[in-house]
Design a protein around this nucleic acid. Sequence first.
DNA 1: GGCTAAGCGAGACGGTACGTCTAGTCTTGGG
DNA 2: CCCAAGACTAGACGTACCGTCTCGCTTAGCC
Lengths: 210, 210, 210, 210
Amino acid sequence: MTLRQPPSPGPHAGGRPRDADRTAEILRAALDLVEEVGFRQVTVERVAARTGVAKTTIYRRWPNVSVLVTEAFLAEVTALVPVDETLTAREALRGSMHALVRVFQGRDGQILRGLLGQAQTDEVLRESLLHRWLTPRRQLGLEVVRHGKQSGELDKNLDEDVVIDALYGPLYYRLMMPYAPLSEAYADEVLRQVFAGLEPPASDPVRPAP
Amino acid sequence: MTLRQPPSPGPHAGGRPRDADRTAEILRAALDLVEEVGFRQVTVERVAARTGVAKTTIYRRWPNVSVLVTEAFLAEVTALVPVDETLTAREALRGSMHALVRVFQGRDGQILRGLLGQAQTDEVLRESLLHRWLTPRRQLGLEVVRHGKQSGELDKNLDEDVVIDALYGPLYYRLMMPYAPLSEAYADEVLRQVFAGLEPPASDPVRPAP
Amino acid sequence: MTLRQPPSPGPHAGGRPRDADRTAEILRAALDLVEEVGFRQVTVERVAARTGVAKTTIYRRWPNVSVLVTEAFLAEVTALVPVDETLTAREALRGSMHALVRVFQGRDGQILRGLLGQAQTDEVLRESLLHRWLTPRRQLGLEVVRHGKQSGELDKNLDEDVVIDALYGPLYYRLMMPYAPLSEAYADEVLRQVFAGLEPPASDPVRPAP
Amino acid sequence: MTLRQPPSPGPHAGGRPRDADRTAEILRAALDLVEEVGFRQVTVERVAARTGVAKTTIYRRWPNVSVLVTEAFLAEVTALVPVDETLTAREALRGSMHALVRVFQGRDGQILRGLLGQAQTDEVLRESLLHRWLTPRRQLGLEVVRHGKQSGELDKNLDEDVVIDALYGPLYYRLMMPYAPLSEAYADEVLRQVFAGLEPPASDPVRPAP
DNA sequence: GGCTAAGCGAGACGGTACGTCTAGTCTTGGG
DNA sequence: CCCAAGACTAGACGTACCGTCTCGCTTAGCC
């Protein structure tokens, strides 16, 4: 059984090394094809044809199209930005939600949708996306929430995971079940309502004027 | 061009009518197969083999497996329960969220996952699920929120869609990106935090140290 | 397991019948390709491309190229001619050897060569050729030899199989190990020498020099 | 362009010389593999894997598997035995036919069958086998026949090639179209009938008494 | 009771893609 | 120049499903 791994980092073990140019071309072609013909129509055969590479050259590196597109996608998406410590939790979360909305609105959002769709029936892909896409991003959010709790900005009794889910869950929900379009304004509204809670302000000047 | 419609309601046009037993067998087999071999492995060919029915008999009724499974799924899931008007909005939403969690935990949850996954790359299926699964359920929720606003239980300034997203979004999020298991307790915690908001109780800092 | 048989003779069992035109086209293309590109280059893929038929349509009928070409070959070669009882054994054998030489010299000879070559490492093909090509032809020859023995034309002590081998073996030998070309004259010479035996005429040494 | 020649005889031209051990190992492995898995399954890849040698090391010496196996085969088969001049032609031919039958019955026979099969569709291999296997053996036979003619043992009018074909053709015929097994007894019977001819003895006291 | 339109099982058909295999060549790094 | 290792292009393999298309037969419902 072949390892089907990208050339292991570190010293080269012997034999002709994998051609890095080929790798790059294939990754590029995979993403371009997703954009042009849609995730479902991206096949190993098509990627090979597009790049002029033999199918074996692809299968040597990735076991199937989903994994190939995942790698290509993760290599393309902008790196994680570490949290700016000078911001309030609310500001930090807002910035991060906006960034996610912008990703979702672009070609990467369409690719991610395809991948998440595929992942629903592909255990391996699901694990991969959880570990390489979702978890690192959640960690940043959780960190922000933890800081907010320590600083007194957020309620000490909050379950951090639930906070993240309440803020980001709706964004993924709208990505995948698009009954209405995503926008930064939408993200702002989610943020506002979740921060404020659903009940009317206790101090409401509802007490009528005498 | 074949119509590929379920027997049109209304008077029978002539010719031998479709066999309702066949229809039922096929629907049953489709769901059983999803359970046994997973959504991806359910093919028209396999459903035909399992039921001893000809492929044409299936294609005459549904244009492809996704639609077939969708119909089977929608026919299986328990009907919508109209809102109990005597409950508070919070109680009504809690009951509905629990019901959804229970669906997600069972075989129907797995089927829905497969369908939603497929829908990410299948426009027609996506529309179908939006109209026949999601929207009716959203409507009930929106109704509850509207009532709550009218009764003064909920803040008048809330965007009803956003409320629903903040409560149900996390549930779909955990269904499809299962970094942790779903449970009714989790639903309760989402409900609690979203209702209360994220900020510490206003009266807290007021209590001065004696 | 599919039977991979040409449509069974007799009444049609149900389902759409195989298209006899397709079958004929494929058989024709197979032979043409053997002629044009050589036995080794004939692949299912190429036959499919040439005929505009799907690969499955070929695999439904024949399990591999060798069998396909065998069928095509056997369908093409002229039918067995029953022995003419009015001829002497020698005349009958001579006619049959000439006919075989003529086959060997034409395109069918090249095809047969390829098939016999393949058969050396393909048990199934070998059996097939033995039963469908070789044995029926041997039977005719054996019959002639038997008649010859009965009529007194041939020695009663002959082993019929050995007679056939001695006459036809050299022809196959020259087909497959072509150190020199085949011709009807060659067949005549084989016939002459085998009939006469290798030793000098017994009466020769008897003629004393006057 | 690589020469792909066995190490050229004569002085070594410069650079590291080929490792004779490797050559021997490869030849051995090739024959063993023919025996174990059959001619068709012997691939360069497999020979390389078995010997732990790189594919290039094989391709540097032989252009393809057939040639490799041919070399290995020719190196293995027992050398030609010069004709014993004290024997009659018949005795010499009988010994040689028996020797050939014994080769055909052993592992070398199976290898030769594979090679001859392959040669039907491989011009180069065919030439190679003709020159290196067949022709030298024919020469010995022709020599014997020539002697026999000179000594008066054989008819002066015989075509020597045809004699050889009539005696050895049947043996190759039975090797490659094995409708019945080969044996030394069979060779004897061929020899007997071909020497005696097919017609009844002229002096047969068949003429009945009146 | 016969006519007719459609349903039905069976299975052929043109396609597309799969993932694997082998051929023969090329490219490393190290003798 | 040799060697081991292994990447590379090329192309065929045989299989699985797709969705469509005949076949010959069955079955309701209307005339």
